[in-house]
Amino acid sequence: MTFDWQYMIDVLPHYKTALWLTLKLAFIGIVFAILVGLICSIIQYFKIKALSNIVQVYLEIARNTPLLIQLFFLYYGLPKVGITLSGEVCGIIGLTFLGGSYMAEVFRSGMEAVAKSQVETGKAIGLSNLQLMRYVIIPQAFSYSVPGFSANCIFLLKETSVFSGIAILELTNTTKNLMGIFYKTNEALFMLVVGYLIILLPLTIFLTWLERRVRHAEFGN
């Protein structure tokens, strides 16, 4: 196996751009996914009537279909019925759609892990439902949710590789294109793997650290 190091230096700018795009899309997608997940989990926790059923249908659809097909449908299918979205917008919508359902699941089980007696005590000192959420349930649910939350962030970041199916020039697609032009497969794939490691290793380390930091709800009471 041989490597053309000069080639790798030459194409470095392409990878730099691709890496930033990957990070940007993942970040936006994850932020929206957190919002969607939070809203869905609160609806499910309080079992708000009609909404709770809609959320359930959404969760099942999002969790039981591949992201690639979701993206193909958005990117190639929707324009045929008059809705045209750019590749990047499709990517963000797809990641939010998928990620929202994973986040909702993690947050909901986090909320359910908060002891019933905590909720009762909160009521006994006169807190309203909203105050109960704000001061008691969400802070504790958060610390229960961190491991699942971390796993989801890493999962969603990796899922951005699927964006290469809809012509977004993120890391994987950039690699594919460069391979098609220069046939330097070893070098291109090597840089691709390094690219993901550059993003995911620090993230993994950071999330492990975060997990240790916020574990206050687990001991104590």
């Binding site: 290469s164 690699t175 691709l192 290793l201």
Partner: peptide
């Protein structure tokens, strides 16, 4: 850590 799609490409090429 490495996405499955990347693994597919790596082995394939």
């Amino acid at each position: 850590i490495i996405p499955i799609l990347v693994w597919l490409f790596v082995i394939y090429y």
